[in-house]
Amino acid sequence: MWSGDELDLDAYLARIGRPGGSGAAGELRPDLRTLYAVHRAHTAAITFESLDVLLGRPVALDVKSIEDKLVHGRRGGYCYEQNSLLAAALERIGFEVSGRGARNRTRGDSLLAVTHAVLVVTVEGEPWLCDAGFGYQGPREPVPLGRPGAEVQQGEWTYRVRKEEDGILVLCLLRGGVWRDLYAFSPQRYHPVDYVLLNHYSSTHPGSSFIGRVVVHLPGDGVRRALVGRELTLLHPDGLAERRVVGPDELLAVLDREFALRLPERDAAELVRMYPAGD
């Protein structure tokens, strides 16, 4: 399903900071301990970013293209790339992986289209939400789906899944003492071909939130970081959000320092040229 057989698993494990080599890869088992370790390492190592969309470049979702960009090129990616890569790795290890399509709920009461890709991984009969592609508010580790309402602590951040009518599940984040919906998804399974269509909308439609601006996120155990447009936000678990404007002259330094993201020289120069200089 996820072309895991085409993935260079050792290179992926090296990219996310786990020991490489065929021996180390062979020791991985499709169990909960491995799922936690891989998910956590992936979200720590691979930055969420959609800079190719801003640069007007196509976003390919075949495994080899994603591997070339996120693994060998040490770039980041957005949800379709991140979770397709994670799905391929988990499938290669031996996990049962299926896709879901989610509606973003972080923008108030607006009913948004299904544009977010998430994964459901079943371990010993229990389903777990896995998502390496929701940016700075997303989970660092798997979240159990079979225990709605149960609070899950991840570092200084707390998540839970709430169940609504028609089998809809909602991932919620506790911030500043208030539970906030992040996204909602149905039991309907999504396949890689479905993500191709969603990716086309997100990377080309004028209404997409990724069009025409920088979007770079990095979740952490403590502070979460996001650069959207010209605004850098440092989000704290208690709800405090520190914000400041980032100018063109410091853009590349901020990407390096705050997000561990370094672009090839040509891409970096083009990005700086496109970056807005004023309000």
Rank of each mutant, 00 (worst) to 15 (best):
E270T: 15
K69T: 04
S209T: 09
D249K: 14
L35N: 05
E81Q: 13
F48R: 00
G56D: 09
Q153W: 12
E164R: 15
S22Y: 08
I211Y: 06
E151Y: 06
L227K: 10
S208G: 13
G108K: 00
D256F: 13
R18D: 10
P19E: 09
G73K: 02
K69G: 06
L252G: 03
R75M: 05
L145D: 03
L232C: 11
G176D: 10
R100E: 03
L145R: 02
S3C: 11
S203V: 07
D279N: 14
D8L: 05
F259C: 02
A102Y: 11
G101N: 06
D221M: 13
L35D: 08
V246M: 05
G149F: 14
P219H: 07
Y80A: 02
Y12E: 04
R75G: 05
R224M: 09
F259H: 04
G26W: 01
I168C: 13
A150S: 14
G76P: 03
R29P: 05
L90M: 04
R107F: 12
L182V: 11
S98I: 14
V223F: 06
S110T: 15
G239C: 13
G229E: 14
R243D: 00
T204D: 06
L70G: 02
S98M: 14
R162W: 12
C79G: 01
D5Y: 04
G77F: 06
W2T: 00
E6T: 07
D52S: 13
G4P: 07
Y12D: 03
E124C: 13
S98W: 10
F185K: 04
L261N: 01
Q188I: 15
E67I: 04
G23P: 01
E270Y: 13
A87I: 04
L61T: 08
V272K: 00
H217A: 12
L70W: 07
L261C: 05
S208A: 09
G73I: 01
G21L: 12
T106I: 09
V118I: 14
D256A: 15
A268K: 02
H205S: 01
V178H: 14
A24V: 07
D279S: 15
L55T: 05
D166G: 11
P237V: 02
R147Q: 14
V214W: 08
A88R: 01
C172G: 12
E270F: 13
Q188C: 12
Y201R: 02
G23I: 15
L232E: 11
N83M: 10
Y183G: 02
L182E: 12
R75I: 05
D52W: 14
E165H: 11
R189L: 14
I66Q: 00
A253P: 08
G101R: 00
L13A: 02
D62W: 10
P58E: 10
V216P: 07
L251S: 01
R162H: 11
Y190A: 08
G76K: 02
S84T: 15
P19S: 05
M1G: 14
Y195W: 15
W179E: 05
D10F: 07
D256M: 08
R244M: 08
L255C: 07
N199M: 04
P58H: 13
Y136C: 12
R244E: 11
D31G: 09
G17K: 02
V272S: 04
Y136S: 12
P58Q: 10
A11N: 01
P219N: 11
R244Y: 09
R180S: 08
H116V: 11
